[in-house]
């Protein structure tokens, strides 16, 4: 998959450098004083409860949202908080940042009035000046590499959620970005469709793509991310190597978040040790679990019907 995705590299080793950034909506602080570095080729997963500011943080990186104070260096471009800079970033800089940064949204946001291939080919034509023919050819190749060759001429509304999200990934990759931002890419999907999208992301990780990934898929984060950053209550509460943070969280806030998330996944077992390692151990006899839960559900359903 993605055999022809080229991962560009900029001179500096640091792809994204977020320095004490504060973001407010009106009076309300979304997050304050967050600092985070992403190296070239690094995959950073952002996890944490809803409303912690994870999505807003990656939106600040490609300037979809301005921030109040602090600064962000993205692929060599400097962004400053609105409180500190006299004027916002220039159009040219915004264009470079967004061209070199791909973004995938929770709700796909494909363009419904265009066929799949035109969704992917639009930006290369308009922004990079690629010829229409060439852009469509490249789009076809990308779509083929992700297993959507049969969907090239379909319209987005004819696609499943998983297919739509994979097209959205192709659309971002068509700009040959050196950084990918994923904003909860699987949260809007039916459980059975999550795998195909995670598979596409994993293929990109294997190609060495630099990534910031907001996700609720803890197992996936543990698997593919180099670094996990946990955000809660408007702050970065813990950051470190993925397995270390997920298996052996240090801060109380992070522990309580992980225990809640993991308990949801396995309601019956494993109440005392909420870490990821224990979770995996507990998950080993998965089929038994599933069956037990299934019969449980059927029994409850039968009772309801009787009533």
């Amino acid at each position: 998959m993605f055999s022809d995705v080229m991962v560009n590299s900029t001179p500096s080793d640091i792809a994204v450098d977020i320095r004490s950034v504060t973001k407010k909506f009106g009076e309300r602080t979304i997050f304050g004083d967050v600092s985070l570095q992403v190296r070239q080729g690094e995959v950073v997963a952002l996890i944490g409860p809803s409303g912690a500011g994870k999505s807003t943080l990656i939106r600040c990186v490609n300037c979809l949202t301005p921030f109040e104070s602090g600064s962000i260096m993205v692929l060599g471009h400097e962004l400053h908080g609105t409180n500190e800079a006299k004027r916002g970033p220039s159009r040219e800089m915004l264009k470079s940042i967004r061209t070199e940064t791909g973004m995938v949204f929770q709700s796909f946001n494909l363009f419904p009035h265009m066929s799949v291939v035109d969704n992917v080919a639009l930006a290369p034509v308009l922004v990079l000046g690629t010829s229409r023919e060439e852009a469509r050819e490249q789009a076809r190749e990308l779509l083929c590499s992700i297993g959507l060759s049969h969907r090239v001429d379909a319209y987005p509304r004819h696609l499943s959620g998983g297919e739509q999200q994979r097209v959205a990934i192709c659309r971002a990759l068509a700009m040959k970005p050196s950084l990918m931002l994923f904003d909860e890419p699987t949260s809007a999907l039916d459980p059975e469709l999550v795998g195909e999208v995670l598979g596409a992301i994993r293929a990109l990780v294997d190609r060495g793509m630099t990534m910031m990934l907001v996700t609720h898929e803890m197992m996936f984060a543990r698997d593919v991310a180099d670094t996990v950053a946990v955000m809660a209550d408007g702050a970065l509460v813990e950051i470190g190597p993925a397995r270390q943070v997920l298996d052996d969280p240090q801060t109380d806030r992070c522990k309580s978040f992980l225990s809640r998330v993991l308990q949801q996944k396995a309601p019956s077992a494993n109440t005392s040790a909420p870490s990821m390692g224990a979770q995996i151990a507990a998950d080993a006899p998965t089929q038994e679990h599933e069956q037990a839960r299934d019969t449980d559900r059927k029994r409850k359903h039968a009772e309801e019907v009787e009533r």
Partner: peptide, 18 residues
């Protein structure tokens, strides 16, 4: 028109007019 549409095109580097 869903605001996500404008976000997606902006994130791709299209100008406001485009």
């Amino acid at each position: 028109v869903h605001p996500g549409q404008l976000e997606a095109s902006t994130a791709l580097g299209l100008s406001r007019f485009q």
